[in-house]
Design a protein around this nucleic acid. Sequence first.
DNA 1: GCGACAG
DNA 2: ATCTTGTCGC
Length: 314
Amino acid sequence: MIDRDFHLRDHDLYRYIFDMAVQIPTGMVSTYGTMARSLGDQAASRAVGMMLAADHARPFKVPCHRVIYSDGRTGWYTGAGKGEERKRELLLSEGVPISDGRVLDLERTVFKDFRVDPILTRMADSQRELAPLVSEHGDAMRFERIAGLDVSYDGDRAFSAMVTVNRDGKVLEEKTARCQVNFPYVPGYLGFREMRPYSSLLNKARQDTLYLIDGHGRAHPRRAGIACQFGVVHGIAVGGVAKSVLTGSMETGSLYIENEEVGRVIKDGQGRERFISVGNRVDLTSLCSLVSSISHNPTTLAHDLCTRYRKGRS
DNA sequence: GCGACAG
DNA sequence: ATCTTGTCGC
């Protein structure tokens, strides 16, 4: 049984990062990569840097200047008196050894013993648990309704949209929603950023509708991309329609992970290249045929709608 | 230089 | 993803 609430919840990764930063003792530093690894995945290192630099509400004072690059480079400080120079000043005044813009003796100066819940490990485990629940069977052509979904952002305010068309490409329904997300984009964990914005578009999960999501399904390091998460959590048919590759190798129009075909490249109704992979309850071949055959890609329609919605309401 | 990571 | 400027094609 999958923990639906775990997938649907807004996990506040900012709070995790702030709670970690205050654990770095005066006179020591940590690195973006070290903090990401403590959370469970080094892939989040850029996200750690983005969160520390972001203009985001903080419940207490966060010593961002104590977080540096893993090669010792001090980097930038976005707080009061911003700049490279200010960050070095602050660290020097705290007794951190710096020379030539680099923190010295990293073995001793880099703090690694964070006390934190390894949330990314739990998320990755949850994706591995979900992967075997994905069904790759079902004819995409049997659906009367095809719904494209996408999200647009203003900072961490998400504006999502769903456009439902029939197989002739005629628009049957449009819907928008907005919500706050506090989980940044981390490669491999997109589902934990966008599950709520997408789910808030669903009055009820419809079995007569094929949902197409901007992102991958099985073409994911743990075979559980956002299209799989959305499909299994709601028990619906979903296809992944991505603009670029996340993982795997391309050979003659197919995307492979360890000799298994996990996706295909096609041209959509507008002639644009898209990477298709199974989310849930459809087979790859009919899914590709469907996306190629619809004159207006519902995912593109949803992209345009949520962009307009954001610009009109933010 | 390599590898390169959805949105 | 978003921002911003510049360029191309209709």
